[in-house]
């Protein structure tokens, strides 16, 4: 556990800044030293509403960011919050992306997955890596983080895909990955997004080691409730993951097929 002194009480944190990303996504800035690594997540508590897991979209010693899509009761309550409002945070939890010195990486994302990949790109640059930043969305207006990634300099190349062809490559981001792989020799591929997309990314990776950020229903986030246990190994997504090697994940009987809800019932993808 990444928890100091086994204490999982919340830290009350004020929202310092809110950035609107698209019609249903905002980035929330907290000026605290969270000490998270790329790939890790926090549990965010909206008092009186609920508490849910969110990936860290950026973190340094002075601040961290969460990029959140309003999809249901808890995330919509967050969407309505204002600068100065308080939430409870615990974490960071889970595993991180293993970034080596001077590697050539492809970061493949869909949906809000682009946000945590921004954090990966920032850290990768510190280690002298070259980064192919690939992100996909249904249409242009839903693409996230383009300007921020453009601001990272020459060692990061932005590639995007849209289902409707309104911007970039027309098709899936995993097809775009195959295109990019024709021109560059990659050391690793990191993926974050819908499981079916990550499965396709793992398959497209071929011999290149791939690491996926897996999302399963997490109740506690720190290895007690068992809600995110994966079939057939019984490993916990919150502790063994969320970042796991594709080599391990591809052998899981549930991979790409189903996830479970808060009661443990299977939901097919």
């Amino acid at each position: 556990m990444n928890v100091k002194n086994h204490d999982t009480r919340f830290e009350a944190m004020e929202i310092s800044e809110i950035v609107e990303e698209n019609s249903y996504t905002k980035t929330y800035v907290f000026k605290y030293d969270l000490g998270a690594k790329p790939g890790q997540f926090v549990m965010l508590w909206v008092p009186g509403v609920d508490e849910k897991p969110f990936s860290v979209a950026y973190c340094d010693s002075g601040e961290f960011w969460l990029t959140i899509c309003a999809v249901g009761p808890c995330s919509k309550a967050i969407y309505e919050m204002k600068v100065g409002d308080r939430v409870g945070i615990r974490g960071p939890f889970g595993t991180e992306y293993d970034i080596g010195e001077g590697e050539h990486l492809a970061l493949v994302s869909g949906g809000y997955g682009a946000a945590p990949m921004y954090f990966v790109a920032k850290e990768a640059l510190k280690k002298g890596c070259k980064v192919e930043f690939l992100t996909g969305a249904r249409s242009e207006d839903l693409l996230l983080f383009e300007e921020r990634v453009a601001g990272l300099g020459d060692d990061v190349t932005w590639h995007c895909s849209t289902d409707d062809g309104s911007k970039g490559f027309k098709g899936y981001v995993t097809q775009l990955l195959s295109e990019v792989m024709k021109d560059v020799k990659l050391d690793k591929i990191f993926a974050c997004g819908p499981e079916v997309m990550m499965k396709a990314a793992g398959e497209a990776a071929g011999d290149v080691p791939a690491y996926l950020s897996m999302e399963k229903y997490m109740k506690c986030g720190f290895g007690v409730c068992g809600q995110c246990a994966i079939d057939d190994t019984g490993d916990l997504c919150c502790k063994k993951g969320p970042v796991m090697a594709y080599d391990y994940v591809k052998g899981l009987s549930e991979f790409g097929k189903y996830h479970r809800d808060a009661q443990g019932k299977k939901n097919e993808y």
Partner: peptide, 23 residues
């Protein structure tokens, strides 16, 4: 079952109210 937060722990104790969620 209950909504979150459903549990937390400290060095010396653990408190939970999962609310017996089950399928």
């Amino acid at each position: 079952g209950h909504a979150n937060p459903t549990m937390f722990g400290t060095d010396s104790y653990f408190l939970n109210a999962v609310g017996l969620s089950d399928a």
